[in-house]
Design a protein around this nucleic acid. Structure first.
Lengths: 154, 154
DNA sequence: TATTGTTATACTCTATAACTATA
DNA sequence: TATAGTTATAGAGTATAACAATA
C-alpha cells in the first residue's frame, strides 16, 4: 500500500543532490510503478516478479529453474519459493525431464495459460498508465536508455 | 552480491513481451544499479536509502522523522530503524525539539558530516559509472523521463 | 568434480495496527 | 481529537552455505 503523505509540507523540503542522481530517480520511479502494478494487476496475488516468470515459462516451455534464474539474474535458490507459489496456485508445473533426473521442465498449466492471458491484458493497461505522460518516442527512448545502463553495472 | 550467471545459455532465452515493458526495464536496471551502489559505496554499511536520508538531513537540518517519511514516500514506521541505524553509527542525532516534546530534530553529527562528504564523492563516482554509456544529454533526458512517470502512478 | 534443485537460515525493506506521550 | 514517534508483527524478496541426488 502507498503510505500516506501526512502533509508535512514536502514541497518545502530541499532534496539536495538527490534530483541529480539517476539512481535516486530509478529507485523512486521503480517503487511507484511497482506499487501501481500491485494495485492494478496484483489482485491475483501476482507480483511483477511472478509475472516475469510466467512470461519466460510461456515463451520457453520446458526451461529449467537454473535457466530461469540465470535469465532473471537472481540466485537459483530464489526461484524455488516463487515456483512453489505458482505451482501451489496451479499455474505452473514441474515436469520430470526424460534425459536428466536432476532437473525439471517448467510449463504453464491450462489454468496458467488462462490466467496468464488475463494478466497480460492487465499488465498492458498498467503499462499504458505508466506511460501516460510519454509520447511513443519518449517511451522507446526511455527503454533504450535503461538498456544502455544495465550492461555497465551488471 | 551479484548472483552467478551459471552460464545457462541466457542468450538463447526468449524474453517474450518483457522487453516491451517499461516496468521490466526499470526493475532490472534499478536492481543492477542498487547492487553496484552496494559494491562501491556500500563499504560503509550504507544503503541507497540511508544515503538519501543523510542527504535530506544535511540539506534540511532539524527536520522531523515524519517530514522525512513524507519526503521519501514511505511510512513513518519505516524511518525508525533507519534512523536507529544511523544514530547507532553516530552519524545522526535525534535532538529534543524545544517547542514540541513529541518530535525530534534530526541533525548530522560531526562524524556524520565527515562520512557524508566521503560518501558523496563515492556516490558521484558510482553515478559516473552508471552513466558511462550515456551522453550528458541522454542522462538529462533519462531523468526527465523518469520524473514524468512518477506523478502518474504515485 | 560439477550441476540441479532444495533446505535452513538470515537480513533488508517496508507495511499495518496498536500503543505512548504529547498537543 | 490529532500528531510524533515507537513497538510488535508480518510478509516479500533475495542471498549464502550446505546437502542429496544425479551427471
Amino acid at each position: 500500500m502507498a503510505p500516506k503523505n501526512n502533509n508535512a509540507a514536502v514541497g518545502e523540503i530541499n532534496f539536495g543532490l538527490l534530483p541529480n542522481l539517476i539512481g535516486y530517480h530509478l529507485r523512486r520511479t521503480q517503487s511507484a510503478v511497482f506499487r501501481h502494478f500491485m494495485q492494478t494487476v496484483g489482485d491475483h496475488d501476482i507480483t511483477p516478479g511472478h509475472f516475469g516468470i510466467l512470461v519466460l515459462i510461456d515463451a520457453n516451455p520446458g526451461l529449467s529453474q537454473s535457466m530461469l534464474a540465470a535469465a532473471l539474474n537472481v540466485d537459483r535458490s530464489s526461484i524455488v519459493p516463487a515456483i512453489d507459489h505458482l505451482e501451489g496456485r496451479n499455474l505452473v508445473v514441474r515436469e520430470k525431464k526424460p534425459g536428466d533426473r536432476r532437473t525439471y521442465e517448467l510449463r504453464l498449466t491450462k489454468e496458467g495459460e488462462r490466467i496468464f492471458a488475463m494478466l497480460t491484458k492487465a499488465v498492458y493497461e498498467h503499462e499504458e498508465t505508466v506511460a501516460k505522460n510519454l509520447t511513443p518516442e519518449e517511451r522507446n527512448q526511455l527503454i533504450t536508455l535503461l538498456k544502455k545502463i544495465r550492461p555497465v553495472v551488471e
